[in-house]
Design a protein around this nucleic acid. Structure first.
Lengths: 213, 213
DNA sequence: GACTAAATGGAACAACCTTCCCGTATTGCG
DNA sequence: CGCAATACGGGAAGGTTGTTCCATTTAGTC
C-alpha cells in the first residue's frame, strides 16, 4: 500500500512528532471528559490539539484508534504493586487505587471511553485486554507471596483473586452505575479475602461446602 | 408549544404507533448486533424498520434514546427468580442465566450497547440502573430465604450477594474481555458463597480475620 | 550546514446527521 | 359511520463530520 511498510510516526518519533502525539492524546482525554466516547470526533480532537485533521487520520485512523492508543500509553505507565507485608493491606491498597482511578475525572472518563469503544472495535478491545491482563499479572505476585507466607491456601489462583477485587468496583461503575466508594473497596477486599481463606480460589477446586473434600 | 404537553406516541399508543415502535426497537437490536452502539445510526434504523426517519427522531431523539427505550422494554419483561430450595443451586441458576444472556447474540449485544451508551447519556444510564437494580431486587429474596433457612448468617445483605455473583461475569465481558463461560459462573457462585458463609456479607460488618475483633 | 525522506497542515470534496415543512394516513370518539 | 386530532412519511435544506490531495515544514544523517 501507500505506507512505507511502517506506521506513520514510528520512523521519526522525536521532536515535532512526539509533541503532536502528546497534544492529540491530551486533547482526546479532554474531549472524553466533556462528551464521552460517543461524542468524540476526529475533527474536534484535531482542532483542540492544534494539529491538522490529516495528521490525526493518518496516525490514528479513527476515534477507537485514538482511545486505543490512549490505553496503550497508560499500559506503559506501569504502577508497581504494593508490598506491605500482609495480604489484607496489600489488597486494600490495590482496591483503593482502583477506586481512586475510577473517580479521577480524566482517568475515569478514559477508562469508560475505552470500555465503550471496545464494544465495537477490535483494536480498542485488544488495548483494553492488554492493559488489564498486564495489571492483573503485576498484582498476582502479591497473592503468591501471601501463599508463600502461609496466609492463603496453597494453590490459590492469584490472578483470580485480583480480578475478584476489581470486579465489584467496575460492576458498580459500568453496570449498576452506583458510586464507587472506598467503602465498596473495603467490602470487596473483605469478601474476596474470606473466599480466598476458605480455599475458593484454589485452582481446579470448586469449594462450596464448609469442609474440603 | 409545539408538543401537546405529551411525548409523541403516548396519546394514541394503539395500532400503527405500537407497530412502529416494535419495528424500530427490533431494527435497533439488529443494527446493534451488526455494528455495535458506535455504528448505530438513526438513518439505518429507520430504513431497516421501514419507517420514516422523522418518526424515529421525533419519538426517540437520538441513538442513546433508542437503546434506553430498548432497555426499558427489557426491564418490563420480568424474569421470575429461582426457588430450588437451596441457596447454592439458586445462585447457580442466577449465574448461569447471566452467562446465557451475555452470550446470546441479541441480548449480549444489547446489553453492551446500553452499557456503552450509559457512559455518555443520562437517559441510557438511568435505564441501565433501573434495569439492574430491579433484577437485583428480584433475586434478593433468594438470599433472604436462605438466611431464614439458616444456610447463611443472619444479617447477610442479599442485594450485595446477588451483585457479587454477577460482577465477575460482567467484568470478564466488558473489562478483561475474556470469555464468559459456565465455568466462570461456577467459580463466582463458589467464591461468593464461601464469603457469604464466612459472614463477609453481613451488613455493617467487615469480616477480614478468622475471628471477629 | 546541506540533503533526503518523513511528517504535517490547509483546503477541497463527499457523506452523513438532523431538522423543517406539509401532505397523508390512522386512531379514538361521538 | 363521520369528525377532529394525532402520528407518520417524503423530500429538501443547512450544518457537521469524515476523508483525501498536495505543497510546505521538519527530523535525522552525512
Amino acid at each position: 500500500m501507500e505506507q512505507p511498510s511502517r506506521i506513520a510516526g514510528t520512523v521519526r518519533p522525536g521532536g515535532r512528532t512526539a509533541r503532536v502525539r502528546a497534544a492529540v492524546l491530551e486533547a482526546t482525554q479532554d474531549e472524553l471528559v466533556e462528551h464521552g466516547f460517543h461524542g468524540l470526533t476526529m475533527d474536534q480532537v484535531a482542532a483542540r490539539a492544534g494539529v491538522g485533521k490529516t495528521t490525526v487520520y493518518r496516525r490514528w485512523g479513527s476515534t477507537p484508534g485514538l482511545v486505543a492508543d490512549l490505553m496503550t500509553e497508560l499500559a506503559n505507565q506501569s504502577s508497581p504493586h504494593a508490598d506491605t507485608g500482609g495480604i489484607e493491606s496489600d489488597l486494600r491498597v490495590n482496591a483503593l487505587a482502583v477506586v481512586e482511578a475510577l473517580n479521577d475525572g480524566r482517568l475515569g472518563a478514559t477508562f469508560q471511553a475505552v470500555i465503550a469503544a471496545a464494544t465495537c472495535d477490535e483494536q480498542a478491545s485488544l488495548a483494553l485486554r492488554t492493559f488489564y491482563l498486564r495489571r492483573i499479572e503485576e498484582w498476582t505476585s502479591v497473592v503468591d507471596l501471601a501463599v508463600a507466607r502461609g496466609e492463603l491456601p496453597v494453590g490459590t489462583d492469584g490472578g483470580e483473586v485480583i480480578r475478584a477485587i476489581a470486579a465489584p468496583l467496575y460492576y458498580r461503575l459500568m453496570i449498576t452505575r452506583e458510586p464507587v466508594t472506598a467503602e465498596a473497596a473495603e467490602w470487596s477486599v473483605a469478601r474476596t479475602l474470606a473466599a480466598a481463606r476458605a480455599g475458593a480460589f484454589v485452582t481446579g477446586a470448586l469449594v462450596t461446602g464448609g469442609a474440603p473434600g
